[in-house]
Design a binder for these strands. Structure first.
Length: 114
DNA sequence: CTTCTAACA
DNA sequence: TGTTAGCA
């Protein structure tokens, strides 16, 4: 009885599932991939294989986008996060904490887009 | 039939 | 972004 943990990092989801899970069009998902916001795994025939983490990430991206952020700005907050994230193993809730934290960064950065 | 890339009425 | 064309 081992490994009953859900591997959120395993990329096994096809575009069709991600499309329904995120509500995004495959066009958008591919575009975000092209912009380097996500790095899905590739399967036979170059077909993208997403993990649950990728889905979370996509939801995250969509949230920032309709909050008014540009792709470039999302990349910026990613970098600012990397530096704080360099240590400390991440927990489950850490992911959600990051969301609020990043939103605050944008607010303190003079972006009253909310 | 599903996904992929590239291109544009 | 949608959508369509032409391949895997």
């Amino acid at each position: 009885m081992s490994e009953r943990e859900l591997r959120r990092d395993l990329a096994v989801l096809p575009m069709s599932v991600v499309r329904e899970l995120t509500g995004l069009s495959d066009r958008q998902v591919r575009y975000y991939d092209q912009q380097g916001l996500i790095e899905p795994q590739r399967g036979a025939g170059k077909q993208r294989r997403f993990s649950l983490d990728d889905v979370d990430r996509l939801l995250q991206i969509a949230e920032y986008l309709d909050a008014g952020y540009t792709v470039a700005e999302i990349h910026e907050v990613d970098q600012k996060q990397q530096r704080k994230h360099t240590k400390e193993p991440s927990e489950e809730s850490l992911r959600h904490m990051l969301a609020d934290e990043l939103l605050n960064i944008g607010r303190l950065n003079g972006k009253q887009k909310f």
